[in-house]
């Protein structure tokens, strides 16, 4: 121990001690602090309230009553929360024209907790059950009818195969190529951003299932070659020029460069 004593005034001692102290505190805290989900006495609603206070309240108010930065959401119900949070639209990363989908950082349990909390504020639509949105078991005629419904009600903004499209003032109708049946159902009931609400009286659950089923089937179909994003004739014209005329011009250069000389 003599060596330690002799070095106790070494200039590295203070930073090292500081590091040690931080390490001990951190370790002790991580052992003592309760894991988020483990306490048995915390109900789903209470967890949700905590998460809401952390991630949502700055715009929607502590009780969901709304602020100048965000609307009141007391009566939107669990359905809207499930849609907005699980697609990553909420919480917003920053002020923007519309909430864009991004990677969802909440677990399913956390999303459920948030939904349960918001549902407890007032009555609102509940998260749909699988029977409400799952297109399994539809007949071919029902799927074809889903296509007609899609073209009549949705394709004006979302494009003929759901590739998405532009809306005024920087807003967009998002692509539905990767949208799940549940999210399509929820979006139609919620009407996020510019989208109109399709409630059960105008669009019964069966019709929603048909639309989701049509899109799933459509996207599973093989295409007639490369599709260039499925955005229609603009992309086709672009590739006609770049690939078609590009290749043929190169061939023309090649043909003209191959000469023969008469003696």
């Amino acid at each position: 121990m003599r060596s330690l004593t002799s070095r106790r005034r070494h200039k590295a001692v203070r930073p090292l001690l500081m590091l040690l102290a931080l390490l001990v505190t951190g370790t002790l805290y991580s052992l003592a602090a309760p894991p988020q989900q483990s306490s048995a006495d915390t109900s789903l609603v209470a967890t949700g309230k905590g998460l809401f206070t952390q991630s949502c309240a700055s715009c929607h108010g502590l009780g969901g009553e709304g602020t100048s930065a965000g609307p009141a959401i007391t009566d939107v119900g669990a359905l809207a929360v499930d849609f907005e949070v699980s697609t990553g639209r909420m919480p917003k990363a920053g002020p923007a024209i519309q909430s864009a989908p991004k990677v969802n950082l909440f677990t399913q349990t956390e999303t459920d907790a948030l939904a349960a909390y918001v549902a407890s504020l007032a009555t609102g639509p509940a998260v749909p059950t699988k029977a409400q949105y799952d297109p399994a078991g539809l007949t071919e005629e029902q799927l074809a009818r889903g296509g007609e419904l899609f073209r009549t009600n949705c394709s004006a903004c979302h494009n003929y195969q759901g590739s998405g499209g532009a809306l005024p003032n920087g807003a967009v109708a998002p692509s539905l190529l990767d949208a799940s049946a549940k999210h399509i159902y929820e979006a139609m009931r919620v009407g996020p951003n510019q989208m109109p609400i399709f409630n059960e009286s105008t669009m019964p659950d069966t019709d929603v299932r048909s639309i989701a089923g049509y899109l799933q089937e459509l996207h599973a179909q093989p295409a007639g070659g490369l599709t260039f994003g499925g955005v229609g004739p603009v992309a086709e014209g672009f590739f006609a020029w770049v690939i078609g005329i590009g290749a043929l011009t190169l061939f023309a250069v090649w043909i003209a460069a191959r000469g023969a000389r008469a003696r």
Binding site: G147, S155, Y160, G225, V231, G232
Partner: peptide, 22 residues
């Protein structure tokens, strides 16, 4: 290269229009 996938557009119906109509 797929061009003009008519089966995706559906039959013509004057009440319908699609984004990406060019």
């Amino acid at each position: 290269m797929q061009i003009n996938p008519v089966w995706n557009f559906g039959p013509y119906n004057p009440s319908q229009v699609t984004a990406g109509s060019q």
